[in-house]
């Protein structure tokens, strides 16, 4: 049997209809579009919760391509990405994994937190991420050639200094790298206000708090508060919680378990609100 004669299920992918809210920060949109035009894969680097996922969703909408997102974890196997056989009736049926589906459909495939995945998974993305642009589906003996519109995007948080969480040079050098960071105060306040549904003045104070916690990075905190945490706090405030309570829960407790550190964070919350 040739691969195409096998019974195969490929999930159908659709493009997002509504524009996701994304606040442009620098020239990332233009860079991404240029990379897409040249069929180059993209690596998004940046701390947690700074808008990487949101950015990819927005770009997929902008380019009108379907988006397949895979959150990588340490048990993610190649089969999880590429596909596997299932039993149906008397025979077997092949189901494409998310990566294969994305390649066939010419979608954008976003592998979130790639360093979390098992090392062997990187092997399948290498031929997709260089000029060959093919996916090797070993179990079917099939080589899927990526159409023009297929694009591979991976993300990575360089903040984890652990050697376990490092991207191999052979992987990272295949990608165009875009640096992400928390946006400057005015922009971040705008994002927090819109996403969190709070007034500008509240959003500004939340961003202020975020900056104070970022000052503590490396002084007992691994990371300061992300935009995401600030949005969470804003949402709690929007739902009627008192700002101090909201920030203690959404920011201070979320950042640390060390009692000394949470004391300090609480003090900062009380200073701002």
């Amino acid at each position: 049997m040739s691969p195409t004669e096998l019974r195969t299920i490929t999930p159908t992918l659709e493009t997002q209809a509504d524009e996701p809210y994304y606040q442009q920060v620098a020239d990332e949109v233009a860079l991404f579009e240029a990379a897409a035009a040249r069929r180059l894969p993209v690596l998004l680097k940046g701390p947690t919760g700074c808008g990487k996922t949101r950015f990819v969703e927005y770009m997929a909408w902008r380019l009108q391509r379907p988006l397949v997102t895979v959150a990588c974890h340490d048990d993610l196997t190649t089969a999880d990405l590429v596909g596997r056989y299932l039993i149906a009736g008397e025979g077997t049926i092949w189901v494409d994994g998310p990566l294969t589906a994305a390649v066939r459909a010419g979608a954008i495939c976003y592998l979130d937190e790639i360093v979390e995945a098992r090392k062997d998974t990187t092997v399948v993305i290498h031929p997709l991420a260089d000029s060959r642009r093919v996916l090797c589906v070993e179990k079917r003996g099939e080589l899927v050639r990526a159409p023009e519109s297929f694009m591979l995007v991976i993300s990575y948080n360089p903040g984890y200094q652990s050697v376990l969480k490092e991207i191999k040079p052979s992987t990272r050098q295949r990608f165009v790298a875009l640096d992400f960071d928390y946006p400057e105060a005015a922009l971040e306040a705008r994002i927090v206000a819109i996403e969190g549904g709070v007034e500008a003045s509240v959003a500004q104070r939340l961003v202020k708090l975020g900056q104070l916690t970022r000052n503590l990075k490396g002084e007992g905190l691994d990371e300061g508060a992300s935009t995401r945490l600030l949005v969470h706090a804003a949402q709690l405030i929007g739902a009627g919680m008192a700002p101090r309570t909201a920030c203690t829960a959404a920011v201070a407790r979320a950042l640390s378990d060390d009692p000394e550190m949470t004391d300090t964070l609480d003090e900062l919350v009380r200073a701002v609100f």
Binding site: Q211, L212, T213, R214, N215, L216, E219, G220, E260, M261, D263, T264, E267, L268, A271
Partner: peptide, 12 residues
């Protein structure tokens, strides 16, 4: 220690 962390947060 606590005051030190507090001003560190305030000032960077």
């Amino acid at each position: 220690g606590r005051l030190g962390r507090f001003v560190r947060g305030l000032s960077g």
